[in-house]
Amino acid sequence: MSSPVAVATEVWQTRELLANLIRKELKVRYKGSALGFAWSMITPLALAAIFTLVFATFLRIPFGDGNFTVFFLAGYLVWGFFQNSVMSSAGSIIANGGLISKVYFPRELIPMSLVIAQGVHLLIGLAVVSPLFIWERGFHPELLPAIVVALLLVALFTAGVSMLFGALTVKFRDLTELLPVVMMAWFYLTPIIYSIETIRGAASNGDTWVTVLRVNPMTWFAELFHTLLYGIALPLDPSNPLGSPPHPPPQIPDLATWGVCTLCAALAFVFGYVVFRRSASSFAKQV
């Protein structure tokens, strides 16, 4: 297996191919669509409206004195980036079998291009909903450097998981059928439509459930972005007849959250990279 420095040099030398793959992905996704890139703006807003109607209005999930729609968007935009990157990368090696069997290039370019393309959609989504965040939660320019670092961490984590599934599905084709089910379960086990504080306060054994949820690395990334973009979502306070206290505004997450996210990002990327590189030599034969 080539060293990381050698691979990085090879990727840099083929950066034009990477740019072409990114452009192809951005064009193909909405090819033939009347609205095109507007779907990157419409989809998160439409989903926010649906989830707000179902969970905040019909099911009345306890959320305290806060805005459920903004809270949901702060977590879902990052989840959508992660899910779409992994789902598209899972079958990407097989889908590009003709290119792989005919031309040599660093195979990492394929999942890498998909993650970067999804990152473009994430940035578009954040730009579209930022006025809503500012209107509801205030303007906090001092948090922008932390948001950039958080985006880099989740991108690193996503790239690792994408490379892992990209390699595994070449050998285990049934994963492409199983992955949507896995992602659905993973979504509901990640605090996106509910907060950690709500689970801790609503359930009789809330602390135990919080411990279980925090085994999931995406829980930490969801908390990271919820804190940076929304603030702290406090649960209802049944002992307070006047209602629950207002939710604190966006702020810098604690060091534990940063530390776990950094560790998860590094471990996922290294593990995904190693598995991908060890499998890459046989891709041409298997696809």
Score class of each variant (00 low, 15 high):
Y273A: 05
F51N: 01
I199K: 02
W135N: 11
L236H: 03
L236D: 02
Y230K: 02
K31W: 14
R15T: 08
P246H: 04
P248S: 10
L45N: 01
S88G: 14
S3F: 07
A8R: 07
L255M: 14
P241N: 14
S89E: 08
R278Q: 11
V182K: 13
L109R: 06
L255K: 06
T69W: 07
L143R: 12
M41L: 09
R29V: 14
I42C: 15
M112D: 08
P180R: 05
T227Q: 08
F157I: 02
S282E: 12
L77T: 07
S2M: 14
A155G: 15
K285Q: 15
R107H: 11
V28W: 13
F269L: 08
L236A: 05
A256C: 13
V274D: 01
A74L: 04
Y188L: 09
P253D: 05
G206R: 04
Y273R: 09
F225G: 02
L123C: 11
D207A: 15
E177P: 01
P238A: 07
A146P: 10
M218G: 00
G91T: 03
P241T: 14
V28G: 10
M112R: 08
R173M: 00
L224D: 06
C261W: 00
V154W: 02
F55A: 02
Q286T: 15
R29K: 13
T169I: 09
P250F: 04
I100K: 02
S279P: 04
A127T: 08
L21A: 07
R23C: 13
L234R: 02
K24S: 12
N96R: 11
E108H: 05
K285R: 09
P111Q: 07
F81N: 02
T43C: 08
L189A: 03
S33W: 10
V11I: 12
F271E: 12
F269D: 03
F68T: 00
N216R: 04
